[in-house]
Simulated scan of single mutants.
Amino acid sequence: MIADRGRLRTMLASLVRTLHVGVLADCFFDPGTAACLKQATNIDGKMPLTALCKPTRCPNACITARHRPAWSRSAEDATTLLKEKRLSPLQRTTVKQDLQRIEAVLDGLDRRI
C-alpha cells in the first residue's frame, strides 16, 4: 500500500502495531494479515519475515517516498535484464510483469509527491 502522510500518522498512532523499517516498504506487522507468514511453515509469527515480503500484496506494508530510490533501482535492473537476449520467453514474461508492478508503485508514489 502506498501511504500518504495522513494514513501514515494514523498507523503510527496505533499502539497495537509495531513499525518494522524496510528497504522497499515499512511494515506495520499484524500476524493475522501478514502475507509473509502465509508463505512460511514452522514459524513463531512474532516478527515479519522480510525475505518473503511482498509489499504490493500485503496490507501491512507501507510504501512512502523514502522507498522510491529502491523501487527506481529495481525498475532500472529489470529494464537492463530485458535487454539480455538469452532470456527464455517465460523469464522475459516474468520480468515484464514484475516491471509493470514496479512502475505502478512508482506512479503511485509520484502522484503523492
Rank of each mutant, 00 (worst) to 15 (best):
L49G: 08
L37C: 07
A25R: 09
R5I: 13
G6P: 03
N42W: 01
A51V: 04
S14R: 14
Q91N: 13
H20Y: 08
A40M: 09
L19V: 11
S14I: 07
D77K: 09
M47H: 13
A104V: 11
V21E: 06
A65S: 14
R101M: 10
L15D: 15
L12C: 06
G45K: 09
V95W: 03
K46C: 05
N42R: 13
L49A: 05
R9G: 05
P69K: 06
R73G: 07
A104R: 12
D26I: 01
C36I: 05
D4S: 12
V105Q: 00
F29S: 05
A70H: 12
W71I: 05
L19A: 03
K46F: 11
T80A: 15
N60R: 02
I102H: 00
R68K: 11
M47N: 12
T33H: 03
T10F: 10
P48G: 02
D30P: 01
A75R: 09
R86D: 14
F28Y: 14
L12G: 02
F28I: 00
G32M: 00
E76I: 03
C53N: 04
E84A: 15
I113R: 11
L99N: 00
C53A: 15
A35K: 03
D4W: 12
C58R: 09
D77M: 05
A65K: 07
K46I: 07
L19F: 03
L87F: 09
S72P: 00
L8W: 13
Q91I: 06
T56Q: 14
L15M: 11
Q100A: 13
C53P: 00
S88M: 13
Q91G: 02
A34K: 01
